[in-house]
Simulated scan of single mutants.
Amino acid sequence: MQDPQYRVEVARQQTTYNQPSYPSFYLASDTDWSTVPVPGRR
């Protein structure tokens, strides 16, 4: 729930027409998790 677009889509899904929410970033099996920044960490 750190991603603003995803958070808004989840809220919209709960209050209006039910469609899947999508994050604003690419999330797939080929993602290199060692380069993904962690929110709140420096």
Rank of each mutant, 00 (worst) to 15 (best):
M1I: 12
D3H: 00
D3A: 00
D3I: 00
P4K: 11
Q5M: 11
Y6M: 14
Y6W: 14
R7M: 06
R7D: 06
V8W: 05
V8K: 12
V8R: 10
V8A: 15
V8Q: 12
E9N: 09
E9I: 04
V10N: 03
V10H: 01
V10A: 02
V10I: 13
R12T: 07
R12E: 10
Q13V: 04
Q13C: 11
Q14I: 07
Q14M: 10
T15Q: 15
T15A: 13
T15V: 10
T16A: 05
Y17P: 00
N18K: 13
N18T: 08
Q19K: 12
P20S: 08
P20W: 01
P20D: 05
S21H: 02
S21A: 15
P23L: 04
P23H: 05
P23G: 03
S24P: 00
F25A: 10
F25T: 07
Y26Q: 14
L27K: 09
S29R: 07
S29C: 13
D30N: 13
T31P: 00
T31Q: 09
D32Y: 13
D32M: 11
D32E: 15
T35S: 15
T35N: 11
T35Y: 10
V36A: 03
P37Q: 06
P37R: 14
V38F: 01
G40D: 08
G40C: 04
G40M: 02
G40T: 03
R41P: 00
R41F: 08
R41V: 09
